[in-house]
Write a protein that binds this DNA or RNA. Structure first.
Lengths: 222, 222
DNA sequence: CGATAGCTTGAGAGTACTCAAAGTGGGTGG
DNA sequence: CCACCCACTTTGAGTACTCTCAAGCTATCG
């Protein structure tokens, strides 16, 4: 998932794999386990069934960028030629479906899967473009607010009249996703908490007290 | 094109459209002409034949992000559902080939084109991931240096022993592509010029005097 | 209960932004 | 053909934001 400014996450956007002939197996991942590494041969493509994955890239000098978080229904592992171009780790215990990578190259064996992978790739491109806006054109506070808004829309659940959701990733992951620092993320969250927009029952869960104000903050409203 | 940190631009990465049955027509664009708008119905996908295109997105509050520059061989117009998700304008007089958008959805009518579009989408995803590193994890100077390095690799020509290329986009376009400002881009170029890394015969062309130093600057070498 | 990893908070520094003004060059009309 | 105009670029000064470094705090896990 690309946590973006105007993301669209249609229901049932996944691959609907129950009727596909190219499913190879379901893979279970423990918290912290690695699904693949940058540079690994990309024999498979994956759909997240449950749990949450993290895709990262690292520059030679050690600077890290979190490319995306993989939530249920997301496709991860789009290859670059024959290799994976990111690391992929499980933030929580996860299950993924694995497909033969050939399904990407042509639709001979499974046209339905092939077409769906193409649609997933197009969604991915669109979501990444949204994310460009966030990385390039938002202040640190706006980035954090946008991040919370999108997570809320994607995985928030109502509880006592307020939307609530978990942050399975650490502050450093959020920072590396948003192109900022751990301290800046923490300060932004603290400010939102003190101004009453959100509550943080613990450091890994969020309650939206004033979603409208949060959205305005995310949009850079005056 | 996503001007990125480690872009790969294989020769003949285009669609090789001479043998495809789905070519609809060649479209000529004057400088400044618009190929499509964000929100337009996306009936076609395009391959740049010659000239240079600019893909942009704008936030409600007017902040703009240049998503990519389209150079010959690049595919532009990947749809978001049935709509274009960026504006696309010609920076120079350009020619593009147009394909029926159906070629994306399935390979029934033209399997070869369909497969190539999928490969183009995968390249696009990879290039965008590279660009994330640049937007999120590089300083302004590093961004500008990276931009010049990638342009050099893509379109530079040797001249009197030095690599040279044009900048068909204005400083503001470069800034909006890199997530910085016109002034910052200008200052970065001036510093590179004064330190002897580059020469600027005019504001729209660049000569690399010391490509190695420029690359080190782009990589954030100490 | 102590150790450790992650989170928060603070102070200070530096980068990049904003606002402003001057310089440059290409194009058009007189 | 020249002069003006306009858009773009460059340069400067001041400010604000975010980063860095550092220290204290909290929660989790053996």
């Amino acid at each position: 998932m690309y946590v973006t400014t105007q993301s669209v996450h249609p229901q049932n956007a996944g691959l609907g794999t129950h009727d596909c002939r190219s499913v190879h197996r379901t893979i279970s991942l423990a918290k912290g386990a690695r699904l693949f590494c940058e540079g690994d041969s990309a024999d498979r493509v994956y759909e997240v069934q449950n749990g949450i994955l993290r895709l990262t890239r690292v520059l030679e000098n050690g600077r890290r960028q979190v490319i995306a978080f993989g939530y249920p229904g997301d496709i991860v592992g789009f290859p670059h030629f024959d290799c994976h171009n990111t690391d992929c780790d499980a933030l929580t215990p996860s299950k993924v479906l694995s497909f033969n990578r050939k399904a990407l190259d042509n639709g001979d064996t499974d046209p339905a899967l092939h077409a769906r992978l193409m649609q997933a790739a197009l969604r991915e491109i669109n979501a990444m473009q949204d994310h460009f806006m966030m990385l390039g054109r938002k202040s640190a506070t706006e980035k954090v607010a946008s991040f919370l808004c999108v997570l809320s829309a994607r995985v928030g659940v109502m509880n006592n009249g307020y939307t609530q959701f978990d942050l399975p990733m650490c502050r450093g992951d959020i920072a590396d996703f948003l192109g900022t620092t751990t301290e800046t993320v923490s300060r932004a969250l603290t400010r939102m908490r003190k101004s009453g927009m959100i509550a943080l029952p613990n450091s890994n869960s969020v309650i939206l007290r004033n979603p409208r104000a949060l959205q305005d903050l995310a949009d850079g409203a005056e």
